[in-house]
């Protein structure tokens, strides 16, 4: 009985989670443009999607900003985390508290605060400001995922390297960085996904001609339906599922190897 209830409840939740996505997928093959009417099977919305310059441009900016901002924030974040880790108690507390602000603050506040800064400095809003704003909200997450790894590290390892004649830079490269690598990778992945999914902060910090996918969908959704969005949803779902299945397969394989 309990088992049945569990299954029943999970099915309901999964229907709730997937119903909207499945409806969009069905509509993406619908010949008729109107939402409620089935006009026959078609692939024309997919063709239209790839011909849509605006969407392609938005996709390009989304990936470019995500890639650049995650690389920049991973580099800055990793070195800053090492620096913060080696600070005195007071300095560390101060740095971490400020670092935590973009995480705690609602996106909309971070977004308008940065926009206020850029406009006050007479900086033209556009690609660069959008990139900077992404780096601003990404670095804190990188630092927060690298710091625990630094804490776990045996501090004598670095000292041993230095005693054995390594220069600080060499010790950093050969001892510290390899040790904290898992944290760095986690941080980079978080940064990349946050950047790809961001809407609010980009919305306030971008200028004419530069949009990302979220901004583009928002402006289209406000104007009305465009069936090519449905096609886009289907393709994105497919990508996500394939990626996750690959990751899942790799990790379960890894699990089997260990015992």
């Amino acid at each position: 009985m309990v088992k049945f209830l569990r299954k029943f409840y999970m099915s309901l939740i999964f229907i709730f989670l997937y119903a909207p996505i499945i409806v969009l997928i069905i509509y993406s093959f619908n010949e008729s443009k109107s939402r409620g009417h089935w006009g026959g099977f078609t692939l024309k919305w997919y063709a239209e999607l790839f011909r849509d310059r605006e969407i392609i441009k938005a996709l390009y900016y989304t990936f470019l900003v995500a890639l650049l901002s995650s690389i920049i924030s991973t580099v800055i974040g990793t070195f800053s985390a090492i620096g913060i880790h080696n600070m005195g108690l007071l300095g560390k507390k101060f740095a971490l508290n400020i670092n935590y602000l973009p995480v705690l603050n609602p996106d909309i506040v971070t977004g308008i605060a940065l926009m206020t800064l850029f406009i006050s400095l007479n900086i033209q809003l556009g690609f660069v400001t959008m990139l900077i704003s992404h780096v601003v909200f990404n670095i804190p997450y990188v630092i927060l995922s690298v710091l625990p790894k630094l804490k776990q590290m045996n501090k004598h390892t670095t000292e041993a390297a230095l005693d054995l004649g390594a220069t600080p830079a060499y010790a950093l490269r050969k001892v510290v960085i390899p040790e904290i690598m898992p944290g760095v990778i986690t941080g980079a992945l978080i940064a990349f996904t946050l950047s790809i999914d961001d809407f609010v902060i980009s919305f306030f910090n971008t200028g004419p001609g530069v949009t990302n996918l979220s901004i583009h969908i928002f402006s289209m959704a406000r104007k009305g339906v465009k069936p090519s969005i449905n096609a886009l949803t289907t393709l994105m779902l497919l990508t996500v599922v394939i990626l996750l299945l690959l990751i899942n397969k790799r990790t379960t394989k890894g699990d089997e190897l260990i015992p």
Binding site: I21, L24, T193, D197, I217, F218, I229, M236
Partner: peptide, 11 residues
């Protein structure tokens, strides 16, 4: 993992 805007648009 899907775009937040797409999820809202779906509804």
């Amino acid at each position: 993992w899907m775009n937040f805007l797409l999820r809202t648009y779906a509804w």
